[in-house]
Design a protein around this nucleic acid. Structure first.
Lengths: 232, 232
DNA sequence: CGTGGGGTTGATACAGTTCAAGATACGTGG
DNA sequence: CCACGTATCTTGAACTGTATCAACCCCACG
């Protein structure tokens, strides 16, 4: 494991305040592995043996039941995923697969649980991380239940624009099929949602979207900090 | 506060393993209040000043955005709700209102955060509670995204039957409009879903449902422990 | 009684998926 | 460098799932 990677992982909210010996102990038992795109890292219903941390690349969390499948979320560097299953010593509720070539740090579940009982600072960080993940899922649920697909897209565009300095010209940084999955719809539906947004001030051309009438787009999207804001 | 209530609250997973002085400290700062039905206890976007515990009655968690509203979950005695907002010292993401006359214990957020830093056992219980709430929300999300309304109803009936000793004759213990909200659909849609289940071995008459062909109902519902099981 | 709320039913409309076909983009091998 | 093949994206049409609006039934309760 390269020194750069170590310091990136160390900088995670989950590990930042932790004692050195706790962090070293966690790393000693772990290993970093490189995976090709499309590889399934975790299958739901398997026992949670490791806490995974995406160090490089991108991972999609998804879930299936009765033959249907849906995307739950994406994990990008540097972040940990499925902490809850590890803590409860339970099976995963979600599956995970790489979207690109990715490097993933795998920390044994038992080490995580030990570190938590030994180091109060780590346990406090775990509490914070869990609370954040929980609230993020509640926001997803609200986004899904309270909005149509086109509205979810419009709000996603507004957020992306503000991340890209609010110039009104947005570069889509993911494949559209991935974007469709993230927004909880089919690729066909995403196409139609883009077409529908022409009426509301957003024009798409390839991977670039021009927000020509921000007020109209906002009026259509009706953004809500309790759904869209990352920080709260 | 009556001794019975105290021991009920003490028995919650969140407080069971906690030191006596921690528990006493929490209670000292708290107060128990009685509320009439339909009263809004918490409004989303308000600062989380209290951790609430339903001691008696029933509370509905719901959320609104852009004029639409949806039910997120129900809290029945004895359980705590919206722990995450309290821990992050943030605003509530959900609103809460009583469904019936209810008694609710309100613990100041600052006391909860103090108790957590003082008592490792309490913090450990908080971790477990948060992980459980998080996984429960993920299951809700899967239930919502992977199933139709009729399928959600069918699975709810199967679970209710197993709770009522699997006799195949199920008594619905909530108003149907509440049930519709819990299953994420309109009351009209619930009526139609019940009608549709006649084809799949479940016959409704008033508040009573007869499961006349369990195999057929299971084949239609396709229950999944990773969505329906409370324990995992 | 009569009135009102919960529940059901019907008609209509919108949201979303599916299936199929065509368009565009892109990397590879000839 | 072009041609081809493949994957992504778009568009159209049909269909499922759900919401909405309206009418009506039923029963409990004043």
């Amino acid at each position: 494991m390269r020194p750069d990677d170590i310091s990136d992982v160390r900088a995670l909210p989950l590990f930042r305040e932790v004692r050195d010996e706790t962090f070293d102990g966690l790393l000693r038992a772990s290993f970093l592995q490189r995976f090709p795109p499309g590889l399934v890292l975790i299958r739901e219903n398997e026992r949670a043996d490791f806490l995974h941390v995406v160090v490089e690349g991108a991972v999609e969390m998804f879930a299936s039941s009765a033959g249907r499948e849906t995307t739950i979320s994406f994990a990008r560097p540097v972040s940990a995923f499925i902490l809850a299953a590890v803590l409860k010593d339970q099976v995963y509720l979600q599956s995970a697969r790489t979207l690109e070539t990715s490097r993933v740090l795998m920390i044994p579940a038992s080490s995580v649980r030990e570190a938590m009982t030994d180091d109060a600072a780590f346990m406090a960080a775990v509490v914070h991380d869990l609370a954040t993940a929980y609230r993020s899922t509640v926001k997803d649920l609200k986004n899904q239940k309270l909005r149509t697909g086109a509205e979810r897209l419009a709000n996603w565009l507004l957020r992306l624009d503000s991340e890209q300095h609010g110039t009104g010209s947005v570069e889509i940084d993911v494949e559209k099929r991935q974007l469709a999955a993230r927004l909880g719809m089919t690729p066909e539906n995403l196409s139609r949602a883009f077409a529908a947004l022409k009426q509301h001030g957003a024009i798409v051309r390839g991977m670039r979207v021009e927000i020509v009438d921000r007020d109209a787009l906002i009026a259509f999207a009706r953004p809500d900090p309790l759904v869209d804001d990352e920080r709260t």
